Amino acid sequence: MINLAISLAVYILVAGLLQVATDLQPWLNALVGLLAFGLVYFLLSRRVLKKLTAVMETVQRDMMAGRADKAIKTLEATLPLGKWQFLVTSQLYSQIGSLHYLKRDFGKAFDFLQKGFGRHWPSMGMLAICYMKRNKTDKMIQTFEKAVSLTRNEPLLWNLYAYCLEKVGKHSQAIEVMKKGLKKTGNDENLQENLDALVNGRKMKMQIYGDAWLQFHLEKTGAIVKKQTKAVQGRRKIVRR
């Protein structure tokens, strides 16, 4: 990218000038050139990071205020920044795709999520769900496998993977995923509870993850409210007794 190209140009310039203007050994010229390369690349990368941080703060404020469309436009306007630094474009695609997904615009979300950043596990989960909804189970599994290989210690990701496997009728595979997730997350309690539920033929309890779970739109909010209402009513009956 541009940052790398500029840094390489500085390396060549510095090493070349030292070679012509001094009596230093060639390896010393190269070493000084490398130091100049590293410093310039660091400063340019930091400049890009500051711009991205400012953009994400603006996007977050817009999302908190319910201005999702404005947030998406801000991110799209930032895409040219990807020419300067590696991985910036894929990270922006993940963010844009995630916002479209949150709006339930799954078609647009899918287009961006496919080109997203593999280490952004929520967007990878959303992409896997898009494949599931398109009846592409193999692609769903491939996407989840990539996600858990890059983000091994996130309990919700393992739960989400198993939940989707269960949803497409792969019960035994869902159990194996949960067992593997338990090892990778250090025996997470919620993972263990949902593993026990699967083994005993019960539904997984995903509401424990709150908004982090709701963002995937796999369960209607109305259904969750009903469950919570019943739970509250049940507790009241117990108290009365």
Rank of each mutant, 00 (worst) to 15 (best):
Y161G: 01
Y161C: 02
A162G: 05
Y163T: 00
Y163F: 14
Y163M: 04
C164P: 02
K167V: 06
K167R: 15
G169M: 10
K170D: 01
H171W: 05
S172T: 08
S172E: 13
A174K: 01
V177C: 03
K179M: 11
K180M: 09
G181H: 00
K183M: 12
K184Y: 06
G186N: 08
N187Y: 09
D188G: 11
D188M: 08
D188P: 05
E189P: 11
N190K: 15
L191T: 02
Q192H: 13
Q192F: 08
Q192K: 15
E193K: 15
N194C: 04
L195S: 02
L195H: 04
L195W: 02
L195V: 04
L195Y: 07
D196L: 09
L198T: 00
L198A: 03
V199P: 05
G201D: 07
K203I: 01
K203S: 14
M204N: 03
K205G: 05
Q207L: 13
I208H: 10
Y209W: 15
A212I: 13
F216P: 00
H217R: 10
E219H: 10
E219P: 04
K220W: 08
K220C: 06
T221S: 12
T221C: 05
T221K: 12
G222I: 09
G222A: 15
G222E: 14
I224D: 04
I224M: 09
K226D: 15
Q228G: 09
Q228S: 09
T229L: 14
T229S: 12
K230T: 10
